[in-house]
Simulated assay, not measured.
Amino acid sequence: MSIVLTAEDLFDQVKKMPINERIKFFSLVAINAFQEADYTHEQVFGHLRNASFSAQEAAEFLEISLPTLRRHVQAGRLKPASIVGRSQLFSSADLKLLKQKINKE
């Protein structure tokens, strides 16, 4: 008879662990799960290709402040892909291009 442990069961058990044991657990997972894997950029970030990012998320991706992001928008270097109410959403492709330009400067 084998016992099947679901992801939810495991998560519940991890939540009950003392903090030091959780740190050890996640360290072991990281070391063993990613030790031999050589993931491509596409495998890790491919699902974000068509994603939209809020202004805050865009600023974090670009590693700039929100006011600096707003200045890029005002200067026309970045255009929102869509506007929902007062919120601007930015495409990942546009953010990637702007990040490349910023990194060249």
Rank of each mutant, 00 (worst) to 15 (best):
V29G: 03
R49H: 07
H72A: 06
A51I: 09
V29R: 07
S52G: 08
A55P: 08
L78H: 01
R49T: 07
E36Q: 08
I31K: 15
A33W: 00
R71W: 09
R49A: 14
S65V: 08
H47E: 08
N50P: 02
T40G: 09
L66F: 13
E63R: 14
A58V: 00
A75S: 05
N32K: 13
A51M: 12
E63P: 10
S91A: 15
Q56W: 09
E36Y: 10
L62A: 04
L28E: 14
L48G: 00
S52D: 09
E60P: 01
S82D: 10
V84M: 14
S82F: 03
S91L: 04
T68R: 11
P67Q: 03
S87L: 14
A55M: 04
G85W: 01
Q35L: 07
T68D: 07
P67I: 01
N50W: 07
L48T: 06
P80S: 02
L48K: 07
H47F: 05
L69N: 01
F53C: 00
F53Q: 05
H47A: 11
E63F: 12
S91N: 13
I64T: 10
A75D: 15
L89D: 06
A33M: 06
R70T: 07
H41W: 15
P80H: 06
S52P: 06
R70C: 09
A81N: 15
A58Q: 00
G85Y: 06
E57V: 03
A59D: 11
V44C: 06
L89S: 02
G76P: 02
G85A: 02
L78C: 11
F90V: 08
I31R: 15
L66Y: 13
A33F: 04
L66A: 15
F34Q: 08
Q88Y: 06
A33Q: 09
A59C: 03
L48N: 04
R49F: 04
V73A: 13
F45V: 07
A37M: 09
A30C: 13
L62N: 00
R71H: 08
N50R: 07
V44I: 04
R77Y: 05
G46R: 03
R49W: 08
V44R: 03
E60S: 03
F90A: 07
Y39G: 04
S92L: 07
S82C: 02
T40S: 14
K79Y: 08
V29W: 06
F53M: 02
S52M: 02
R77S: 06
